[in-house]
Design a protein around this nucleic acid. Structure first.
Length: 195
DNA sequence: AGGAAGATCTACT
DNA sequence: GTAGATCTTCCTA
C-alpha cells in the first residue's frame, strides 16, 4: 500500500449515513504511526443518526464532544466507552446529523506493530471489534476531529480493496434502544467480523 | 460534587 | 453465559 494513496473525497461522506456505512465496507484504512504504515480493510460498520436515534451519541443534541456528528462530513468522531476508544466518521446529507462506527478490520499491513499496540499475537483477535481496532491502530482522542479526506492526514480512508464480495445486514450490536431498521453492515463470511 | 450509565473486552465458569 | 475492569460524559443537587 502506497502511503501517499489518495483518500475518498468529502462528497463520499455527504450522503445518507447508512449508505456510507455500507459503502465503506471493503475500503482501506491507512494509519501513519511514526514511520510505520498500518493498513486494514473495513469489514464491519454501523450507522448512527441524530435526534431520531435513541442509541446515538447525538440523540440529546449537540455537545462539545459529539460536535463532529453535526458538522461537515469526513471528520473523525472519537469517544470512549468502558475505557476503550471508538472510531466513527461523520457522514450525513447536508443539514442532517450522523456518523459511521467502524466495528472491525481485516489487518493488511503493519501487523507486527498492531500486535505490539494490542499486546496480543492472535491475528483474529487483533482488530475484530470496535475497541480492539482503535488500540491496534493507536487511535485516541488525539485524532478527534481529524479530516480523513486530507491526503496528508495521519489516518485516512482510501478506495482500495476487493471489488467482489457479498455484504449482509443485521441489527446493531450492544444497543439497548435500537431502531426498527437494520443499521449494521458487514462482509459476509469474513473471519474478522466481530461476531 | 457525586453517582450512574454505556455503540466493550477479557477472563473466568 | 456472566462478572468485573475502568473512564468519560451526563444528570441531579
Amino acid at each position: 500500500m502506497d502511503a501517499g494513496a489518495v483518500p475518498l473525497e468529502r462528497s463520499f461522506y455527504r450522503r445518507d449515513t447508512a449508505v456510507v456505512a455500507q459503502e465503506l465496507l471493503g475500503k482501506t484504512i491507512v494509519r501513519r504511526q511514526d514511520q510505520q504504515v498500518l493498513t486494514g480493510r473495513i469489514v464491519e460498520t454501523e450507522a448512527y443518526y441524530g435526534d431520531k436515534d435513541p442509541a446515538s451519541r447525538a440523540y440529546r443534541g449537540r455537545k462539545n464532544y459529539n460536535s463532529p456528528m453535526f458538522d461537515d462530513p469526513g471528520r473523525l468522531f472519537v469517544y470512549m466507552v468502558h475505557s476503550w476508544w471508538l472510531l466513527n466518521i461523520a457522514a450525513h446529507e447536508l443539514g442532517e446529523v450522523g456518523a459511521v462506527l467502524i466495528r472491525a478490520l481485516e489487518p493488511i499491513e503493519g501487523i507486527p506493530v498492531m500486535e505490539d499496540n494490542r499486546g496480543v499475537t492472535d491475528l483474529h483477535n487483533l482488530t475484530s471489534g470496535p475497541g480492539k481496532l482503535t488500540k491496534a491502530l493507536n487511535v485516541t482522542k488525539d485524532l478527534h476531529g481529524l479530516d480523513v479526506t486530507e491526503g496528508s492526514a495521519e489516518l485516512k480512508i482510501v478506495d482500495e480493496g476487493p471489488e467482489d464480495f457479498q455484504t449482509a445486514t443485521s441489527h446493531r450490536i450492544g444497543v439497548t434502544r435500537d431502531l426498527p431498521r437494520k443499521l449494521r453492515f458487514y462482509v459476509k463470511g469474513n473471519r474478522f467480523v466481530s461476531r
